[in-house]
Structure formats: C-alpha cells, structure tokens
C-alpha cells in the first residue's frame, strides 16, 4: 500500500463529507420542492466515489451515471454551480440545461453524467482513445452501476479498449440494487470476473466502505493505464443508504432490514474518521472540517438562491457551435 500524506488523507475525508452534506441538503430541497424533479444521492457510497476520484490526477477524465453528484464533487468541482444546476439556475454548471442527471464540469475532467444506464461508458473510452492518440499520460475512468454491468455496450467497450490498449478504468459501483432489483438475481457470476474474458485485470473490492481499499485498487488500475499497459475493471461493493431516488416511496420492502442496518454500521465517513483519529488526527480538527464543509454547502445554497433563472431564450442556444436555431 502506498504511503499517503496526511494532507491527502484529510482531503479524502473532506471530499466524502462534501458529497454527504451536498446530497443530504439536495434531498431536503427535493422534498421541500426547492429542486424540481428528483435526485439520486450517493449517500453511503462516498468511499467508493472518493477512493476512485482521488486515485486520478488533474487532467484525467471521468464519466458517470444517474447517481451523479458524487463524481464531479469527488473530482473537485465547486459546489455552488452544481447546486445551482440542480435547481435550474442560470449559474448552474450546465446553465440549467442538464440538471441533476447531466452534471458535467469539464474544468475538472468531468465529461458528463448520463441518465441512460451504461451510455457514458464508451465516452470515457473515447477520452482514453484521445489521450492515447495524442500521446498524453491522461487516464479516463467510467463510473457505472451493477445495473449497467449487464448492458452490452460495456463489453463492446472492454473489448475495444483491450484491443487498442487504452488507458481506461471501468469502475463498477456495485450498490447491489438496480432500483429494486437485487443484482444477484439478474447478474450471472461475478462482475469483476468478467474482466478475464477480455484479458484484463478484474479487481473486486469487497469492502467498498473503506476509502483506502478503494483507493488502492483504483490506483493500481490507474497506474497500469498510465503506464500504457491498458484497461482494467474494478468492482466496488457498496450500499446506498437512501431510496433509489429522493421522494420515491416503494410499496415493497425490497431490501431486508437487517441487511440495511448492517451496512449503516459501515458508514464510510464514520469509519474513516475513526481511522484518522487512530493516526493522531484530533477530533477537534475533524469537527472543524465538518463545520467547514457544512458552511460550503450553505454557501452553495446561498449562491443558488441569489442566482437568477435563465432567460427562456437560452433554451435555444448551444445546440450547434455555429448554427442558429431556426423556428
């Protein structure tokens, strides 16, 4: 295991806290009607997200899915324009055109979340192709869930990136449910094992609540990609604490109570806090960090509240680079 600086370890905790605080606030805002539509939170999956994004470096790329806020936050995207996007304000990171499902912040390498399960996987591969052709050392990482693991495009992309030896990491966020459907009921075999069929490493992180375990596994895959040794598949087993989407109330109890309680006891942020304290970080310092992150979210909401809605005419911009919309 790589020895990480205290600064890096604290940054991991800070980014996990940001995701938690941002999503808890977003959840409340959906329930109060301040955010139109719905959002899909990453609460419970923070270690899986941050362990992956912290293994990347500036200039690298990610693509993601409908559980979408954690990925750009993990890449370091500022919270204000993200929150403004969720509300549909002009200052949103996508000018109010994307919303929760389609966050993107190219400034931090976030090439876009996708509302279509599996659809953004080849986009990451294309970014890796670009890096390979241009001869840079950039790496691309595709986030997708256990549901997307059964989309054909994943296997097309694993094959093609293997053939072309592309610097891409396929990161399966296995939170064990595709909405209400238990992954094991629709998934034959083990997802990570599927890598063998494409001649690439498949790593399964059994404890996806341990940010260092995720970081180690993804760092290995990223180092391999950066060294020109090709793609890898990393499957991280984790759990979402909230419903599939905020405000959703299903009549069926598809997740056993004892299962849920067991995973709640493995809160990645609490576990890492305990780890940091065991290495000598003071509780006061960690409390202060939590307060700072909550203040950041407050600022993001204030920024959002102070921002105007976009002018309706903006709906007709950005379709093409050089062609005006003709009614």
């Amino acid at each position: 295991m790589e020895t990480l600086s205290n600064e890096t370890l604290l940054e991991m905790q800070r980014r996990m806290l940001r995701i938690r605080a941002f999503d808890e606030r977003a959840s409340k805002m959906v329930k109060r009607g301040h955010i139109p539509g719905t959002v899909h939170t990453s609460i419970g999956q923070e270690a899986q997200v941050v362990g992956a994004t912290m293994a990347l470096r500036p200039g690298d790329y990610t693509t993601g899915n409908h559980r979408s806020h954690g990925h750009p936050i993990g890449m370091g995207s500022p919270l204000g324009p993200l929150m403004a996007e969720l509300v549909g304000k002009a200052t949103g990171v996508c000018k109010g055109k994307g919303g929760s499902l389609h966050l993107a912040d190219f400034a931090v390498g976030s090439l876009g979340e996708s509302g279509i399960v599996g659809s953004s996987i080849p986009i990451a591969m294309g970014a890796a192709l670009s890096a390979s052709v241009r001869g840079t050392e950039q790496v691309a990482l595709a986030f997708f869930g256990d549901g997307a693991a059964n989309q054909g495009v994943l296997y097309e992309s694993m094959n093609l990136s293997g053939v072309w030896n592309l610097p891409v990491v396929f990161l399966c966020e296995n939170n064990q449910y595709a909405l209400s459907t238990p992954a094991h009921t629709v998934t034959s075999g083990v997802i990570a094992d599927r890598a063998a069929g494409f001649g690439m490493p498949g790593i399964r992180v059994e404890d996806g609540q341990d940010v260092l375990a995720v970081y180690d596994a993804v760092s290995t895959a990223v180092a391999r990609a950066r060294a020109g040794e090709g793609p890898s598949l990393v499957e991280v087993v984790t759990y979402r604490y909230n419903e599939h989407s905020e405000g959703l109330r299903l009549g069926t109890d598809y997740r056993p109570v004892d299962e849920r309680e067991a995973w709640l006891k493995k809160d990645p942020i609490q576990l890492f806090r305990e780890h940091l304290q065991s290495t000598g970080v003071s509780p006061a310092e960690l409390d202060a960090m939590e307060a700072e992150v909550l203040a950041e979210v407050d600022e993001a909401v204030a920024f959002t509240d102070a921002s105007p809605y976009p002018d309706p005419s903006v709906a007709f911009d950005d379709l093409y680079t050089d062609t005006e919309y003709a009614a």
């Binding site: 790329y61 693509t63 090439l111 659809s119 996987i121 080849p122 986009i123 990451a124 591969m125 294309g126 970014a127 890796a128 192709l129 670009s130 890096a131 052709v133 691309a140 495009v153 097309e156 992309s157 094959n159 093609l160």
Partner: peptide, 12 residues
C-alpha cells in the same frame, strides 16, 4: 462502442 468512443474522443 465505436460511436461512443468517437464522441468521447471528439469531446477531448
């Protein structure tokens, strides 16, 4: 995957 790869490459 070819079409998606082209899109991702074009975006970068």
């Amino acid at each position: 995957s070819m079409v998606g790869a082209a899109a991702g490459a074009a975006m970068t």
